[in-house]
């Protein structure tokens, strides 16, 4: 269990000697066991922020820290972070089952590993294909395997970088529902990046709007799961987000 506190984070890149300000003055508090959606155009810095959170990149300024919920005892603190990438990034030489066990390579108790893997194979409906190689399965199955792999690692914070971006609308819808079920079942902290406002409102308890490396607004979504994308509350939130993005673009 862990939340993430992001304070005054800046990130500059240097491309051909020219500085590019990818993120400036980012402040977000991601509560423990909450589902936060980051929404914005491509190039607005969402992915960069995820890379900073999971340590693949270092921030230029500012601080990213993890905090434990107060009720948790001090001696069992952990803040394992993992990311589900935009591409499945499965190991082509491993089967679906072996790919899911991949992060648990160091685990001595192999019974526990196969138990964990089997649990997620069931949950993600991959049991039938557990012996298939990544080249033999569809994009949706590959992305579910990648999600299963991250869940097997059992992180406290799961970062997701447009994991459903490359999927067709039907598969995407189904995985969104799966994701909410897993979120409610496993009580994880999830940070989900998307450029699809519908998806952000469908999934997030809080939607953070990015524009050109800055945060425009934090929009809470107080609708119970499962959400109906045609309900009045849903459409209201969606309208608000869209108008905020539009207002920013007309400046």
């Amino acid at each position: 269990m862990a939340g993430v506190k992001i304070q005054k984070v800046d990130k500059n890149f240097y491309i051909n000697g020219q500085g590019i300000n990818a993120l400036s003055d980012i402040n977000i508090t991601i509560e423990d066991r909450s589902f936060v959606a980051l929404v914005g155009k491509s190039g607005s810095g969402k992915t960069t922020l995820l890379k900073l959170i999971c340590g693949l990149e270092k921030s230029t300024r500012g601080e990213i820290s993890f905090f434990q919920p107060p009720e948790k005892s001090m001696n069992c603190q952990s803040n394992k972070v993992s990311i589900v990438f935009q591409e499945p990034r499965l190991m082509p030489w491993l089967t679906v089952e072996q790919n899911m066990a991949f992060p648990l390579i160091k685990e001595k108790n192999r019974d526990l590993v196969s138990q964990t893997v089997n649990h997620y194979l069931d949950l993600l409906v991959l049991k039938e294909f557990k012996n298939a190689y990544p080249s033999q399965i569809s994009g949706g199955m590959a992305q579910r395997t990648a999600l299963g792999r991250t869940l097997c690692y059992d992180p406290d914070v799961i970062l997701m970088d447009e994991p459903l971006g490359a999927l067709d609308a039907f598969t995407r819808k189904k995985l969104q529902v799966d994701l909410i079920n897993i979120f409610q079942l496993k009580k994880k902290t999830i940070v989900f990046v998307t450029h699809d406002v519908d998806e952000a409102v469908f999934l997030g308890q809080k939607v953070v709007i990015f524009e050109a490396g800055k945060i425009i607004e934090h929009v809470p979504v107080n609708i119970d799961y499962p959400r109906d994308p045609l309900s009045r509350d849903f459409l209201q939130v969606k309208k608000k987000i869209l108008s905020l993005i539009e207002a920013e673009n007309f400046h």
Partner: peptide
């Protein structure tokens, strides 16, 4: 074995 010819396993 993973480099053998690809066969796609049904639907997702």
């Amino acid at each position: 074995p993973w480099t053998r010819k690809r066969s796609v396993y049904g639907r997702s």
